[in-house]
Design a protein around this nucleic acid. Structure first.
Lengths: 351, 351
DNA sequence: ATCACAGATGGGAGCGCTCCCACACTACCT
DNA sequence: AGGTAGTGTGGGAGCGCTCCCATCTGTGAT
C-alpha cells in the first residue's frame, strides 16, 4: 500500500529517530550502535538491534555523508579508454584484487575511465566535488597532471607503478628490477652469452628498472654490457618486430632475447622465425607479464609474472591507511609509503 | 596555507551561502542558477555565475542528495562473476553504449558485480539504502529474484533481455526472432534444404525466440520443420560439439547448421571437420553474436550481429524516462516500455 | 556519608542543500 | 484609481545523520 509516493512523509524508510523511539533510547545511542561504538551497554545494544531488524532500518548514506563529511566510496581511476581496460588482463586482475580486499569493508568501489579529454574534465569536476574518500590510480603516464590535482585537493591516493624513483604519491609496484635480473640470470645459467634486451617504453619507470636489472645481472656475472644488444621497444608487438629486426642485423650471433612484455616477445618471435632461428635451440626467448599469450605461444613462453592481484590488495591496504591518517585531529605528516612486491619467473619451453 | 585540516570551518570548500553573499543575492537564487531554473533574470544569473567561478564553487553532492532525495547515480548490475564480465565482449560493448549515452548527463554510473552469494547480499543492502536512482540489469536468468526486489523497493529499472514474453520490467532486447529468420532465409536462398538448428539455453527467452524464428522461416518457405534437425545446446563450445555429433548421427544428410552462438558454431565446426564435411561446400554454418571469433574462424563465420552498443544507449533512454516519470506528484501508472532493436546478418565465407 | 570519576545516555546544533511560501515589483487591464 | 496577474527574489523549514557536551548513574576511595 502507500501506493503513490513512497516519498511522502509517512510511508518512507524508517529513520534513526524512529528506531530510537522504538527501542526506547535516544538518537545518539542508536547512532553509536550502528557505528559500532564500544560505549554502549549490552542490553541497550540488543534492544537497538532488535528495533533495527523489526523496522528494516537502513542508514541514509547521503545524510551520513553530509554530517560526517565522508562518502564511504573510493574510485579506481583508469586513465585509458575503456577498450584497453577490457583488452588487458592486467586491469581485470587488479580489479579482482581490489574488490576482494574491499569486501570486508563498507566501502563502495567506483570504476572511472578517463581516456578522453571530456572524461578528464568530468573526472576533475568529480574529484573537486570530493565525491570519493580516496583514489586508486593505475597506469599513469609520466606527464599526467592527475597526481598533482589529487595532491592539491588533498585527496588520499595510491598509484600503481610509481612515475619515478622520486614518486610523491604513495605507491605499489612489482619488483621490476628483480624480475629482470631473474630472467637474465636464468638465461646465463642456461649458458647463453649474447643476451639482447628489447625494452619497454622508457618513459615508464618500470621499464627503466628492468633495463637496470638486465644490466646489473650481466655485470654481476662479470660480463660487459654490449649496448648493441639493447634496443628500445614500446610494449607492442609491432615494436617487438622492429626491435628484433634491428638487433638481428646488428648482432646476428645473439643467442637470447629478454623482451619487455609478452606481446613484444610475440613480435620478436615472429621475426626470429622468419630469420630461420629456432626457439629455444638457436635463441632463447623470455617475456614479461606472464599473460595468456605466454601460455599459448609456440613454444610456450618463459615469462616474468607480476603479482597483480596482490598489488591490488596492497593498494587498498595503503589507501585505507592513508585515509585513516587524515581523519584524526591534524594530518600525521607525509609518511609516504611504497610497497614493492616480488615477481616470479615462470619457466616454459622458450628458454 | 590552511595546511592542516581543510575540514576546518574556515579553509574548506565554499558553500551556496557564500556564493550568495558574494553575488549579493539570496540562497534560493543561487540554487536556481545552479540547477538551471528559468525563473532568474539574466543579470542575476551572470552575477551568480561570476561568483561561482571566482570562488570555485562545486555543489556538495551529499547535501543535495539529502535535501532532494536523489543520488544522481545509476547502477549497471552484472549478476555474474567479474571473470565473465571481462571475458565476454558483450559487456564491454554494452558498457560503451551506456557510457556514451550518459555522457551528456550529470549521472554517475556505478558498475556492480553480483556473482556470488556474498555479493548478492551486499547488493540487496545497497539497493535497500537507495543509493542509486535507477538500475540497469544485464544478463539475468529466468529465476533471478533481483527484478522482484527492485520492483518491491520501487526502484526504476531496465532489463536487457526480457525473461519472458510477459516481462514486467521495462526491457530492451534485440530482435532474436528476426535475426534467426534472416539467418535461415539466407540459407534457404543459398539452396540449402536440410537446415539444422543448435539452440541456445532454452531457459533464456531470447534463445526460445530464435527457435521460433527458425521454425517460422522454414514454414513460411513452405517446408516442414523436421524435429530431428533441432537439438538443444547451451551457448558453449562443448555443447556445440555434443549437439553436432547427435545431429550428424540422426541426419547425416544435413546441409546447413544454424548455431545459437558463435562459440557453439565453433564447436559444431570442429565436429563437422572431423566427420570430413567441408564448410561451406558440404555444410553451411551460421553463428550468432558476430563476436571476434566469428571473424577469426576458418572459414570466417557468417553470423547474426546484435546492436549491443545501441542496446546500451536504449537502456539509458528508457531508464531516464522511467526515473522522470516517478519524480512528479504521483507516479504516472505502469506504462511499461519494451524496445526491440534490429539485428543484422553479417555474411562471410561459411555460408 | 562524601567526593571523584568513569561509563552510559539524551539531545542540541549543525552539515549544505532543495523546496516552497511569502513578498516585492512591474505591467496590463478595467 | 483599483484590481489582477504575472516575474523575480529572499529565506524559513526541513532532509537524516554525526558530533559533542551536558547529564545521570553507579562504583570505589576517602
Amino acid at each position: 500500500m502507500a501506493s503513490h509516493g513512497a516519498r511522502g512523509r509517512g510511508g518512507g524508510r524508517p529513520t534513526l529517530e524512529e528506531v530510537a523511539a522504538r527501542a526506547g533510547v535516544g538518537r545518539g545511542t542508536v547512532s553509536r550502535v550502528i557505528n559500532g561504538s564500544p560505549r554502549v551497554s549490552d542490553a541497550t545494544r540488543a534492544a537497538v538491534e532488535a528495533a533495527v531488524t523489526e523496522l528494516g532500518y537502513v542508514p541514509n548514506t547521503a545524510a551520513r555523508a553530509l554530517a560526517a563529511n565522508r562518502t564511504d566510496a573510493i574510485a579506481l581511476v583508469v586513465p585509458e579508454p575503456e577498450t584497453r581496460f577490457f583488452a588487458e588482463p592486467y586491469f581485470s586482475d587488479m580489479l579482482r584484487g581490489v574488490g576482494s580486499q574491499l569486501s570486508d569493508t563498507e566501502l563502495q568501489l567506483l570504476l572511472i575511465f578517463a581516456g578522453g579529454d571530456r572524461e578528464r574534465r568530468r573526472l576533475a569536476q568529480y574529484l573537486a566535488a570530493h565525491r570519493v574518500d580516496g583514489v586508486l590510480l593505475v597506469s599513469v603516464h609520466a606527464d599526467d597532471p592527475l597526481p598533482d590535482l589529487l595532491a592539491q585537493l588533498e585527496i588520499p591516493a595510491v598509484i600503481s607503478g610509481p612515475r619515478s624513483a622520486a614518486e610523491t604519491l604513495t605507491s605499489v609496484d612489482s619488483d621490476n628490477y628483480g624480475g629482470a635480473r631473474s630472467a637474465v640470470e636464468h638465461l646465463l645459467l642456461g649458458g647463453r652469452t649474447r643476451i639482447a634486451h628489447i625494452t619497454g617504453r622508457l618513459d615508464v619507470y618500470g621499464a627503466q628498472r628492468r633495463v637496470d636489472g638486465y644490466r646489473d645481472a650481466l655485470r654481476d656475472a662479470g660480463r660487459e654490457v654490449d649496448e648493441l644488444l639493447v634496443e628500445p621497444g614500446d610494449f607492442t608487438e609491432e615494436g617487438g618486430r622492429r626491435a628484433m629486426t634491428l638487433l638481428l642485423r646488428r648482432r646476428p650471433d645473439l643467442d637470447a632475447v629478454f623482451a619487455g612484455s609478452d606481446v613484444t616477445a610475440a613480435g620478436a618471435r615472429q621475426v626470429l622465425r622468419e630469420a630461420g632461428r629456432r626457439i629455444p635451440d638457436d635463441v632463447a626467448l623470455i617475456g614479461y607479464d606472464d599473460s595468456a599469450i605466454a601460455r599459448h605461444m609456440d613454444p610456450p613462453l618463459t615469462s616474468v609474472r607480476q603479482p597483480i592481484e596482490e598489488m591490488g590488495r596492497a593498494m587498498i591496504d595503503l589507501l585505507l591507511a592513508e585515509i585513516a591518517d587524515r581523519r584524526p585531529p591534524l594530518s600525521r605528516g607525509p609518511a609516504r609509503r611504497h610497497a614493492v612486491l616480488a615477481t616470479e619467473l615462470v619457466t616454459r619451453a622458450s628458454s
